[in-house]
Write a protein that binds this DNA or RNA. Sequence first.
DNA 1: AGATATTTGTACCGATCGGTACGAAAGATG
DNA 2: CATCTTTCGTACCGATCGGTACAAATATCT
Lengths: 205, 205
Amino acid sequence: MQSQEKGPIGRPRGFDTEKALEQAMRVFWQQGYDGASLTDLTKAMGISRTSMYAAFGSKEDLFHLVLQRYTDGPASYVQRALLEPTAREVATAFLHGAVQATTTPGAPAGCLGVQGSLAAGEPGRAARDTLAAWRESGVTLLAERLKRAADEGDLPAGSDPELLARYLMTVANGIAVQAAGGACRDELHRIADLALLQWPAPAGR
Amino acid sequence: MQSQEKGPIGRPRGFDTEKALEQAMRVFWQQGYDGASLTDLTKAMGISRTSMYAAFGSKEDLFHLVLQRYTDGPASYVQRALLEPTAREVATAFLHGAVQATTTPGAPAGCLGVQGSLAAGEPGRAARDTLAAWRESGVTLLAERLKRAADEGDLPAGSDPELLARYLMTVANGIAVQAAGGACRDELHRIADLALLQWPAPAGR
DNA sequence: AGATATTTGTACCGATCGGTACGAAAGATG
DNA sequence: CATCTTTCGTACCGATCGGTACAAATATCT
């Protein structure tokens, strides 16, 4: 019994880590990994460089934490879409979720997983690869869900779940690029509808 | 009559401007505007910093020249697609052309107009805006071509040429992101075919 | 209290950024 | 030959990059 349940020993942290991560996420989202300098980040987080390194490790560590937060927050529409009952509803929820997430007023336009780093020099190459893997994991999740749908007869025989999954991710990535360029939310919703027009009808109908 | 038609006066340039621009294009394409340092660029171009500034002006000027070269070279499939006789053929040529251009062996994967700069800090903001305008001009070109198609009865009444144009650009942008992440050419061609399945049939059929 | 553990601000590190001053080199012109 | 114009290599500019040393500040533990 060493502690009086008064919290950790040592000088207490003078800032809220969650809020700091939230602000860091906005900076990485708007400016990309390379474009976000330590000065930009710490200014937005309202803390000093020292505090940032003590609390989060390094710029790259911070980026990974931010990406996790992004996955659970703005990009949580992916997980929700996977829970939809039919393949068509999964596809619909995924694409329209992407539109919503990339055009949310008050949040940066576009997708952190895309504009965070598509191309980079040597210093940002690790972040670029991290994001490529992140996007690829989304394809895998969709593919597994659609494979199940195919097994359940929710997709016509001869459908290719992996191809359909990558198709959805491709359109979502395009939506992210368009959103980053300032495309309006309504038009992107109509584009998502267009992309869903060719969705294969279930087998037994 | 001062010159004997022996070329410009002064010490002649020791490098080929076209080849230098070609190499600079590859670097910007692979690493993005911010990720491409002057050292990276001049090393690939095989010239010194001084020569680069004397010949091209600045990093930003160089980028604009490179973008023009990219438009006339790897991205020339856009102009070619616009010349196709029917709206469906325009759409098909555009998307499959995008796949070819973003997955050409020996050239960087992806699209310079996308990964050149989607998000950036203050220094690269001008390049980012330049590329956003570049992509938007592509949408405009497609929209004008499809508007003509609508007038010619090549698209069903009630079609929205501007929406269809942005739809095509959205899919092409997604293809670029996928290509940058290493997606394979064949699969992207199949994805382009999927995206074209919903293309509206002409009116009089 | 006093010792210990942690955070904070300041001030700095070497490396790299885009960009340039300057003189030597290389060609045409006279 | 000397002169003029342009390019080239070197060596450097101030600013910024990601990251850190160090001591003052603030908490808990004995």
